[in-house]
């Protein structure tokens, strides 16, 4: 488990750095709340309508919030050439990927853990169910699996803030579709069996893209 312990050292470093600056967490949480509030204006606040659009709002919020935080993931690694510093360390490139991925996963889950109860509160919806938590975790894992890879890629391009959404969004379309549909079912308190096919798609996406991103990550950071 040397591999995992090295990856966790990198996650620990990111968490420590984030605790200092609270750069990502604070801005992303505020951003998520703002999106929720703005959607409220866009759709009006009637209860029946809310139930209809809530899953969409939830996932648009998390998608944009996720993009904001993933965009930042590799910027500190570029500032003082730190990524090269990691590359000369006796760890594999893949450990860097897993470490950064776990860091982004942690941040995203914290943001969601803050945003979901507020969502419940503002929209008066039963958001806090086990089903919804499972959906959120599965979707977020897929997001950061692809996002971490593209973040490492985008940081080496000319217009990095612009690049990430354009690369990232088409790839995660199946994840967004599944998350929205599954959340819709979860909000109307359907059984697990009706959610199964959506959870299946998300699970498959997570596994496939974790493996593929793991395999190609080294090519993205090496010249």
């Amino acid at each position: 488990m040397r591999f995992l312990s090295k990856a966790l050292v990198i996650t620990w470093k990111d968490a420590l750095s984030e605790m200092r600056t609270k750069e990502v967490l604070s801005s992303v949480v505020v951003f998520a709340l703002l999106v929720i509030v703005i959607f409220n204006f866009a759709f009006g606040a009637s209860q029946e309508k809310m139930l209809l659009v809530a899953p969409g709002i939830l996932w648009v919020t998390f998608t944009f919030a996720g993009m904001l935080s993933i965009n930042r993931a590799f910027i500190p690694e570029k500032e003082q050439g730190c990524l090269e510093g990691l590359m000369v360390c006796p760890i594999s490139r893949e450990a860097i990927y897993i470490g950064k991925m776990l860091g982004s996963l942690l941040f995203m889950l914290i943001v969601e853990a803050i945003a979901l109860p507020i969502f419940t509160f503002l929209f008066n919806l039963p958001v806090l169910s086990l089903q919804l938590v499972v959906v959120t975790v599965l979707a977020t894992l897929g997001f950061v699996a692809v996002g971490t890879l593209f973040s490492a890629l985008a940081v080496n391009t000319k217009a990095r803030e612009m690049v990430l959404p354009i690369l990232f969004l088409p790839i995660v379309v199946p994840l967004i579709i599944s998350a929205v549909k599954a959340s819709e079912l979860a909000l109307s308190r359907e059984s697990w069996a009706t959610l199964a096919s959506w959870l299946g798609i998300m699970g498959a996406f997570d596994v496939i893209f974790l493996v593929v991103s793991f395999l190609v990550f080294a090519f993205v950071i090496e010249e």
Binding site: K13, S17, R20, Q80, G81, C82, E84, P90
Partner: peptide, 28 residues
């Protein structure tokens, strides 16, 4: 191998000790 370039490979939000702690963990 040890490397020093014009870039320091140090994280500016962490203290010197934390940076060194980080790298010493990666190097066991």
């Amino acid at each position: 191998i040890g490397v020093v370039t014009h870039q320091t490979f140090l994280y500016s939000h962490l203290t010197g000790r934390e940076n060194l702690e980080f790298y010493s963990r990666l190097y066991d």
